[in-house]
Design a binder for these strands. Structure first.
Lengths: 167, 167
DNA sequence: GGCGATTCTTTGCCAATCGAAGCATCCCCA
DNA sequence: TGGGGATGCTTCGATTGGCAAAGAATCGCC
């Protein structure tokens, strides 16, 4: 069991990473389902919402999501059908569209409240101050390591809206 | 706590988490592509490989991957067609199948060397001993928090084979 | 004025995934 | 010993997410 080789530590780190990954993916799925959406569509709404209400062109959404524009088109189509977003032509550049979150979309999004980060946020906030700081530092460090290869890694909070003292 | 708004820290943690997520997903895609496989199929091979060569029943694969058995059936079908795995009936319980990694499968897997964790593993191993320990502790802590909702979170190293000092 | 670049959509395709139904086999218990 | 229910897997049908390539509208520069 207790190996002498130091590599076991790398293993442990990767295993933990993988668990984080899986847990988060699963959360995302559950969250989406709770709102009656699919994960991809939910992500669109979340990105839009994270832009503080400003409409965003499909190209931007594609960049943020790391998918092609064709995919975004399909997703926006479906969201538009449900009335969660709407397309408006940009006046400055008429080639460009702007996808805007509607009232209905924002409400749908709001229905996916904590549910998701419940566990994490609660656990996190129960920690001592220095522990929180350490965790954040560690996570950012890991992210930086992984990100060394130059991924965009937009800071979009796909995990749901956060930092809102509910109520 | 001294800070006026402690929530900013939660935000930071979630953002970092999200970046880790995205980076890893993208890595996975690249890795799979390098081997000429899709992420899902690659994952099957990896799990099989992680079991140190012992064949595993589809149910186990499904559990590890967090997908349904129907999905595993489809994936194994395709891997079998390519000769990367083969199915054998269990003698102990003839309802059960065992999926075994073939030589060809192992070789395909071996072609997906580091590539993936290159960045992470190298960065990680360059750290001081205590830093490594701290990171592992932090990651495991985060995983535990997320996992509080009772996700299986198998310790399978879907990130690829690890602990290999690159040759 | 026109040609190349940009932005989005359309079309046609494939991979991943699920639920439900179906089938073989096992195991318990009367 | 023989059912009957549980278990393990596959099949079937459907949906979602995703891409590449071709098409259409518009822009901007020369």
């Amino acid at each position: 069991m207790s190996d002498a080789i130091p590599l076991a530590r790398t293993d442990a780190a990767l295993i933990a990473l993988r668990r984080i990954l899986r847990a988060t993916e699963q959360y995302e799925r559950e969250l989406a389902q709770a709102v009656g959406l699919t994960p991809a569509k939910l992500r669109v709404l979340q990105i839009l919402s994270a832009e503080t209400g400003r409409p965003a062109p499909p190209s931007r959404l594609a960049g943020r999501m790391g998918v092609s524009q064709a995919t975004v088109t399909a997703l926006v189509d479906q969201l538009e059908t449900r009335g969660y977003v709407l397309r408006e032509r940009s006046v400055a550049d008429r080639r460009q569209l702007l996808v805007r979150l509607t009232q209905a979309g924002a409400e749908a999004l709001a229905q996916a409240p904590d549910a998701l980060q419940q566990n994490f946020v609660q656990g996190f906030q129960a920690l001592q101050d220095w522990e929180q700081a350490m965790l954040v530092a560690s996570l950012e460090r890991v992210a930086a390591m992984l990100n060394a290869s130059g991924i965009d890694a937009s800071p979009v909070l796909t995990l749901g809206e956060i930092g809102r003292p509910r109520g």
